[in-house]
Amino acid sequence: MITLDLSDNMINGSIPESLCEMKALNNLYLSNNHLSGNLLDCWGNFPSLDVARLSSNQFSGVIPNSIGGAYSLKRLHLNNNSLTGKLPSTLYNCTMLMVLDVRDNNLSGKLPEWNGNYLFYLVVLRLRNNDFYGAIPRAYCQLYQLQIMDLADNKLTGNIPHCLGNFSRMANGGEFLFHR
């Protein structure tokens, strides 16, 4: 297992392009630094990446569409940055995704129409404190493994879908353990 852990430091600047050459990378921990600039646009180079923790930095720009190329991704933490634009629809290619945390950014647009056919294993969906607008998609009712759905502090409108009560994992108080 190949892990790059530089988290909890005072590293600044941008992520070097040479990181794109680490094709066998499994875990990338860069959170809690002073990193800035755009996210790398080479996610397709990481077919065995399980975890990407890039939270609590100063990244800006959009989440690149290439993120869908990291199709083995299980945990993606981009929270507490200054990312803008929409969530890329290519995230549905990450069919093993269990945790998606993009809270506390400047993301916008309508919520993607993800469902359990693509994101069957999604347990945690944190989209809090962004600028998402529109209705909560009914397709979210098909995220059967979901235990945490945090959509607070956005600009959502419309009705709460009645089917949200069908989340069996939430209703039964299922457990999910987070491991680094």
Rank of each mutant, 00 (worst) to 15 (best):
M1Q: 12
I2M: 09
T3A: 15
D5E: 02
D5Q: 06
L6F: 12
N9R: 04
N9L: 06
M10W: 04
M10Q: 15
N12R: 10
I15A: 06
I15H: 03
S18N: 11
S18C: 10
L19K: 08
C20M: 07
M22V: 14
K23I: 12
N26Q: 14
N26I: 08
L28K: 01
S31K: 12
S31C: 12
N32Y: 15
N33C: 09
L35D: 00
L35P: 08
S36D: 06
S36W: 04
G37I: 06
N38S: 11
N38C: 02
L39N: 06
D41Q: 11
N45G: 05
N45C: 07
P47F: 10
S48K: 05
S48Q: 11
L49F: 03
D50C: 06
D50L: 12
V51Y: 09
R53G: 09
L54K: 08
S55L: 01
N57K: 09
F59S: 14
S60A: 09
S60M: 08
V62I: 11
I63F: 00
I63Q: 07
P64F: 01
N65K: 15
N65H: 07
N65M: 06
S66D: 02
S66F: 00
I67K: 14
G68M: 01
G69S: 07
S72F: 01
L73C: 12
R75W: 00
R75Q: 13
L76F: 11
L76R: 14
L78N: 10
N80R: 15
S82E: 04
S82V: 03
S82P: 07
L83W: 01
K86A: 05
P88I: 00
S89D: 13
T90Y: 00
L91W: 05
Y92Q: 14
N93C: 09
C94T: 14
C94H: 07
T95K: 12
L97D: 03
M98Y: 00
L100G: 09
D101H: 13
D101S: 15
V102T: 15
R103M: 12
D104K: 14
D104M: 11
S108L: 02
P112R: 06
E113A: 10
E113W: 07
W114P: 05
W114T: 02
N115G: 15
N117S: 13
L119A: 07
L119Y: 04
Y121M: 12
Y121Q: 10
V123S: 02
V123E: 02
V124N: 03
L125V: 04
R126Y: 04
R126G: 02
L127P: 04
L127C: 03
F132G: 11
F132P: 15
Y133K: 10
G134E: 00
A135F: 01
A135E: 10
I136N: 01
I136R: 01
Y140S: 02
C141M: 03
Y144Q: 05
L146W: 01
M149F: 03
D150F: 04
D150W: 03
N154M: 09
N154H: 04
K155S: 12
K155Q: 15
L156C: 07
T157G: 02
T157N: 11
G158I: 07
I160V: 15
H162I: 04
H162M: 06
C163N: 07
L164R: 05
L164K: 04
G165R: 15
G165M: 08
N166E: 02
F167M: 01
F167H: 10
A171N: 15
G174H: 14
G174Y: 05
E175A: 13
L177D: 08
L177H: 11
F178I: 15
H179V: 13
R180G: 14
